[in-house]
Amino acid sequence: MGQIAWLGPHNPFPNPLIETDPDPSVPGLIAVSERIYPGQLARAYQSGIFPWYSENQPVLWWSPDPRMVLKPSAFKCSDSLRKMIRLFCQNTNSQIAVDADFGAVIRSCATSNRKDQDGTWITHEIMDAYADLHERGNAHSIAVIEDGQMTGGLYCVAFGGMVFGESMFSRKTNASKIALAALSAWCLQNEISMIDCQQETAHLLSLGVAPITRQAFLEQLQISLN
């Protein structure tokens, strides 16, 4: 059994292709740090690593195997969702807002009630770190607006030809699905070949998300960054 790296402000991340799962009892956990240091989040994503932890925990850095991804052209749109999107588009008081209010979207993701989940992993530290990425042009938000109210949305990270989906919220049935459909369309327009969805859920599987190996994901990431 190896030792999980404890990172200081200037330590590089382990290479997930070489130092995979240092502790097999915690598969996918690559490294730990006391906090998210300046510049660390950008380096993590470009290495295929993301943070996921709770308050009162150190920052846990992950690179799971397999990795759940969505090819934008493979987004599954059921007949009922297609009908809802059509009605949404016909409503002149509805709109999809990209990067209109990143802070409001991430706060909504943080405060949304989720089934079988107590609390949120989107801490104030997380919100500040992703807001910094947004200011640098590497984090984006999509909001679903209906009659002046934000009914759903998501935020994501983008480097090269890869988008990393982070969190969604929905205040109305299927609003988060509309947001993901909008993200898929945005990716197609911007020639982005893959959306990283990180973890497997029944909700994501129903929308076309599928697993690939960590190695395949990391190889595709490096191609997208060049």
Rank of each mutant, 00 (worst) to 15 (best):
Q3A: 12
D79M: 08
I145Y: 08
W186H: 13
S224H: 12
S94H: 12
G28F: 03
F75I: 05
G153M: 10
V59N: 12
A104N: 15
G48M: 05
L180T: 04
M68V: 00
A31V: 09
S184A: 13
S176E: 07
Q117S: 14
H140A: 07
Q215W: 00
A139W: 06
W61S: 01
A175V: 06
Q57A: 07
P64G: 03
P9S: 11
P66I: 01
D21F: 01
D99W: 13
S193F: 01
A131G: 15
W61H: 02
H124A: 15
I18K: 12
W61M: 00
F50V: 04
L70C: 00
R43N: 13
R35C: 10
P16Q: 09
S25L: 13
M68Q: 04
F75S: 00
E19Q: 10
S141T: 14
N93L: 13
Y155N: 01
L29D: 09
Q117Y: 14
I122A: 13
W61V: 05
L81Y: 06
G2Q: 10
G8A: 13
Q222S: 08
M162P: 07
M127E: 14
L17K: 03
N93T: 12
P58G: 11
A175M: 07
D79I: 06
R43I: 02
G208Q: 09
Q199D: 01
Q90N: 11
V32T: 09
R114G: 12
T120A: 15
I142E: 01
M150P: 04
Y45M: 14
R67V: 08
Y130M: 05
N190F: 07
L204D: 04
D116T: 06
A202H: 09
F102M: 13
I122V: 15
S193I: 03
A129T: 06
Y53I: 12
E125N: 06
A139C: 08
V209L: 03
N91G: 03
L154N: 01
Q215T: 06
A129Y: 02
I96E: 05
E200I: 08
A131R: 15
S78N: 09
S47L: 03
